[in-house]
Simulated scan of single mutants.
Amino acid sequence: MPAMSEPTTMSVKGQVTIPRDIRERLGLQAGDKIAWTILSNGTVVVRPKTRRLSDLVGILNRPEQPGVSVDEMKPFAE
């Protein structure tokens, strides 16, 4: 069974603080976006949506092609 964090309280504006252990486990930082999904059984799934360019390094690498560094990709991200 997954570990549970301490409960948090929702503010009148609908804001909650994500517990530190959860933020660290998901790699969340200030300004990151989060996607919320409600499954048919009532389970709420929370996923980070912000990806940094460095998170994508190597995902399209093919053995027959030379790799591309993050610095070489930066002009395409601007």
Rank of each mutant, 00 (worst) to 15 (best):
M1H: 02
M1Q: 09
M1F: 07
P2G: 06
A3D: 10
A3Q: 03
E6P: 11
P7D: 03
P7T: 00
P7H: 01
T8G: 03
T8R: 05
T8E: 11
T9D: 09
S11I: 05
G14H: 02
G14V: 00
Q15A: 11
V16R: 01
V16P: 00
V16S: 02
T17D: 06
T17W: 14
I18N: 00
I22M: 04
R23Q: 14
E24R: 04
R25D: 11
L28A: 02
Q29N: 08
Q29W: 00
A30L: 05
K33R: 13
A35L: 14
W36S: 15
W36I: 14
W36N: 10
W36L: 15
W36P: 06
I38D: 02
L39K: 11
N41A: 07
G42R: 02
G42W: 08
T43M: 14
V44D: 12
V44L: 07
V45S: 10
V46A: 00
R47C: 07
P48A: 13
T50I: 04
R51Y: 11
L53A: 08
L53R: 14
D55W: 02
V57T: 12
P63A: 04
E64I: 07
Q65A: 07
P66Y: 06
P66C: 01
G67P: 05
G67Q: 14
V68S: 04
V68M: 14
S69W: 02
S69V: 02
S69L: 08
V70D: 05
E72K: 03
E72L: 01
E72Q: 13
M73S: 03
F76G: 06
F76T: 09
A77C: 08
A77I: 08
E78L: 15
